[in-house]
Design a protein around this nucleic acid. Structure first.
Lengths: 239, 239
DNA sequence: CGGTGTGAAGTTGTTCACAGCT
DNA sequence: AGCTGTGAACAACTTCACACCG
């Protein structure tokens, strides 16, 4: 599960809203998974993969995988499979990972620390160019090569370093303010880790990660397992 | 989006497989969100909410909210709305948050630190009863009142402290091994933060969180914004 | 043959619109 | 009057199954 919908655009609108370019949301959400598996294959020197084996490596149905890839174009070779290197290239391009994105993380508590140190960001073309915190005690510390700066330089930093993605890891209470300031400074993509609903003007892309959400879903399933001892639990592996 | 499907049961099977108890996956994924908003309302002393106002507070369509709540039973009062305290109670029960769950976190790197300190866990009935790390340098440190223990006590700890949920925050390379050991020790619910596909026996509930996934989706949208300057971006707020 | 690409069927989730309760 | 609960239409996503190609 992922993704509540809701086009920001309003007013009448013709029968069917235009998909920006193609690519269903569900597909986009799986591309990073495929990419990771492909990179792992490439590292092992594998040159081609079939949809079946790539599907096995990512835990999805192979028909779904083929359909996902077919949205990118017909890159497979019948009877053979897909060229690993080429597919890596195509998916990276589609995800916009062939260019670098400048990221600012606001809120350097333990989560902010973890995000700054997280290898998965820097390894994929996300360049952390600023760490910002309101607490003077944090300011000055250096993390992953970047020095923590105070909140009041946010606007300057966003503009001078051309920040295109803002990550909010502040306490809930501060999140909307930080968000507003990021948006006002020109950031169009925001990732929110604070447990609050943020609002942004139309055109700004806002996504949210809730660290306790999956834990609560696990608890819900566990609860149900306790209540109906007959039904065998089911295995879940999800994107 | 959430949840790949796939009932464990196999063989012929009558026309429609039985839903374990009700509750669509998409609904379960939203309940934590509703719960948070309801708790915020309760704190402000609000006693009843309409589906419209609760929907506004959580960023979902009000019809969807009513349908979600109707799966739990008919707890609303027509012409009035829902009783906040009662709804909190019902959702908590459904999510299994009325009882405590013992959680073990394995892998105390910066992410493990962040998870251990994250208030959203302990505040919802998730009791962190063990922190485990393979690195002797980490062992002995105390975090959020719990002391980090070495990897070889994993099985003992899981059994003696009745761990029901395991959180894996190790490097990718160690994750499957840790997962196997958790399962062998009797853990039936696992939350994986490591960027690899884990496999578990049927009956074990495995979920995954990928910290860089949402960032990659943001990049994908940003990329598309660059490519087709005409189309206005759309606002996204998701579960 | 082996494996991709895809129409068509099936399933799940969302939204509308309104009957019916309070 | 106001707001819930829900059937029915709609839309999105998944899976099947097979034509077709290398």
């Amino acid at each position: 599960m992922v993704a509540g919908q809701g086009d920001g655009v309003s007013i009448v609108r013709p029968p069917r809203a235009s998909r920006r370019a193609g690519l269903p949301d569900a597909t986009v959400a799986r591309l990073p998974e495929y990419l990771r598996a492909l990179l792992a294959h490439a590292e092992r020197g594998v040159e081609t993969v079939s949809s079946d084996s790539l599907a096995a490596a990512t835990g999805v149905n192979s028909a779904k995988l083929r359909k996902d890839l077919s949205y990118l174009g017909s890159y497979g070779i019948r009877g053979v499979g897909y060229d690993v290197a080429y597919l890596v290239q195509q998916i990276s391009k589609e995800l916009g990972l062939t260019q670098d994105w400048s990221v600012a993380i606001v809120g350097i508590g333990s989560l902010g620390h973890a995000l700054a140190n997280y290898g998965g960001f820097s390894s994929r073309g996300f360049r952390i160019v600023a760490l910002i915190d309101a607490d003077p005690a944090q300011v000055g510390e250096t993390l992953a090569g970047v020095t923590v700066e105070p909140l009041d330089v946010l606007e300057t930093v966003v503009r001078t370093r051309r920040v295109s993605i803002g990550v909010i890891a502040t306490p809930a209470i501060a999140a909307q303010d930080v968000c507003d300031r990021l948006v006002a400074a020109g950031v169009m993509s925001i990732l929110n880790f604070a447990p609050v609903l943020l609002t942004v003007p139309p055109g700004v892309d806002l996504r949210k990660v809730d660290l306790s959400l999956e834990l609560q879903i696990l608890a819900c399933h566990a609860q149900r397992r306790l209540e109906s001892p007959a039904t065998p639990g089911r295995q879940e592996v999800l994107a």
